[in-house]
Design a protein around this nucleic acid. Structure first.
Lengths: 213, 213
DNA sequence: GTCTATAATTTGATAGAC
DNA sequence: GTCTATCAAATTATAGAC
């Protein structure tokens, strides 16, 4: 049910609160979230909130750290997998679109809060003790390019292309629906279709023989 | 200097306020923005703010509408241009990355506020009286595909791919820098490089002969 | 139109009974 | 540990002098 098992020492009430806080903070952001609303969501008294977590700031930091790690670890796991490039790209896109579908608010939340307050979280991120192991993926790209199996491309740019095409349509959904005049339903169907086609779109670009004269 | 000439009836003081409000709202969002801060930024008294715009809500709606239209019109202009597909994609990507570079906060602002409050702005958007003219672009894709010049692809998906790869790296900058362990400077250089390569990445995928057996 | 002062409201946080 | 009642601070909004 909940994904907050990380907080191993937390009792039942604390978990209820954390769950509620995750929901409210990730939807409304730090500034828009109200302690009262979190209390209601957790079906608990507002005073109990402060009893357990002392302040809004402290509670928020816990949630932010948790969400950041979740995104981070998911990406890390995907990118470290040991498989052929073509399979990996297929795996990355499908897995990532799935992950985001199931965690609609996660990316916009972290993206927004990190943008609003870049330095506030330098310490949070350092504390999280995360070191992205991208060498595997980066080297794989370079090797395939050198072998002539794909075209030359900056691995970071490729990585960014993949992530962009998977992630952006989700936080941008309301904006794109508004701009393009698309209904929620049609948009949802497009996203399902998208899962199938992105990997091909990328691979077609990478193995295009035109650029290997 | 300012881009708010749209408010034709606005006097000098009103423009100063609107400029300040745009800056503060787009950086901090509705919930994070303080009327006092907007007043300071405009070098004007807080009471004058309310004298001119009555309430935070009313001021925010003006700014939101303005920013939404700006994104919308820019996209519309680009997509309606009458030129060959290859040139258009080159033009779209370069132009859009430029536009976003110069308006760093615009996209995340509209994206976030629209996501936080989808129905609040249904009326705003309807009032904006905007109808996206995508037929030109959509038909162009279909025609080129039928002629065998590019592979078959859903025009909306292609459109989404282009926009995603141009836009996402900007709102996601702090997050990606944090996750990938890249410095601000290196990221900026990557974005410049990006402007040159995105169009090729897309065209390579579209004209890949592998899929036209 | 612009300012100072202040009202009215919201909201994070705490005291203290049980 | 949990609740009610309440404080203290912040913030939107207005009144009224100039």
């Amino acid at each position: 049910m909940t994904d907050l098992q990380i907080f191993e020492t937390a009792g039942e009430t604390e978990l209820k609160i954390l769950d509620a806080a995750k929901k409210i903070f990730s939807i409304k952001g730090y500034d828009g979230a109200r302690m009262q609303e979190i209390a209601n969501e957790a079906k608990i008294n507002k005073a109990a909130l402060h009893y357990y977590f002392r302040s809004k700031d402290k509670l928020f930091e816990l949630i932010f750290k948790f969400c950041f790690k979740k995104i981070y670890n998911n990406l890390g796991e995907i990118i470290e997998k040991d498989m052929p490039l073509k399979d990996k790209i297929k795996f990355m896109t499908e897995n990532y679109i799935d992950f985001i579908s199931k965690n609609q608010y996660l990316i916009p939340f972290i993206m927004t809060e990190l943008a609003k307050n870049p330095d506030r979280f330098v310490k949070v991120i350092k504390e999280s003790d995360v070191k992205f192991k991208s060498e595997n993926f980066i080297n794989q790209i370079k090797k395939e390019a050198k072998a002539g199996n794909i075209k030359e491309i900056d691995p970071f740019q490729l990585f960014m292309n993949i992530i962009s095409m998977c992630v952006f349509p989700f936080p941008a959904k309301p904006m794109l629906c508004a701009i393009l005049g698309i209904s929620e339903l049609k948009y949802k169907k497009m996203m399902e279709e998208r899962k199938k086609i992105i990997a091909d779109f990328i691979m077609d670009s990478l193995i295009n023989p035109v650029h290997r004269e």
